[in-house]
Design a protein around this nucleic acid. Sequence first.
DNA 1: CATAATTCCTCTAGTAACTACAGGTTCAAG
DNA 2: CTTGAACCTGTAGTTACTAGAGGAATTATG
Lengths: 135, 135
Amino acid sequence: MNIGEAAAASGISAKMLRYYERIGLIGPAQRTESGYRVYGDDDVHTLRFVRRARGLGFSIEETAGLLALWRDKTRASADVKAMALRHMRELEAKITELEAMHRTLKHLAGHCHGDKRPDCPILDDIAGLRLKADA
Amino acid sequence: MNIGEAAAASGISAKMLRYYERIGLIGPAQRTESGYRVYGDDDVHTLRFVRRARGLGFSIEETAGLLALWRDKTRASADVKAMALRHMRELEAKITELEAMHRTLKHLAGHCHGDKRPDCPILDDIAGLRLKADA
DNA sequence: CATAATTCCTCTAGTAACTACAGGTTCAAG
DNA sequence: CTTGAACCTGTAGTTACTAGAGGAATTATG
């Protein structure tokens, strides 16, 4: 199958397939005489793996590591689990950070009239004039 | 005060101050005869505003908008509130996405021995072999 | 079978928001 | 007066894509 079909089958766009190949995340595809890339079912399988790993938030580098582990039939599951746990910690940290932002914003927005008047606790707070902590 | 002092006073590094100036987020600083940037207390006030807005997750472009609103004493608080609410929705979407990743990973990691054995439900799942949904 | 439309190819450059040099001034202290 | 810290500019690298130019190959239609 050619790149367009592989893209449809894997859920990764043709442009991204070329990109992933260029940066070495996936190996160079077979080529027809005229230079068109050709993919097999096993390639699509790999591509789906990549897509899923990326969908779980693993970076390209981590995805490459996961791919290597996947191919290494003698790997220790501990290595995979360690990667997963590390990534989970990163996700937790990010979530905590975003939640803190959200909480602050919610508090501020709750005190802002949101009408034509110019006075606005949101701007006041960002500018350094802290809102009193109340209900 | 020079750039190093302004950096210390605002919490934005000297490099980032130059960067912010270059991209136009903050106006060009005054200069000494020899070309050193000079900042005043009001500049530091602005810088702190920027830092706080960025800390709440607003993009540079949004921060520029917030800055304009802050300076416009005739703004409507509704405009500020709208920005805050829109950003909150983005944060919520991101948090939801990260939580879904985390949930999946937690489920998978919970089923992985994490020892020397190679069999690993995490890789199996990423590869497309779905784990049965159980407790 | 000719032509038109589509798909493919490569390569460059742009995005966000920084960070890291390199190579050079200027300033403050000893 | 010389060292060393802090300043200056400008370029390039980072992550993970996305968009577009310009051109070749393939597929569909008349």
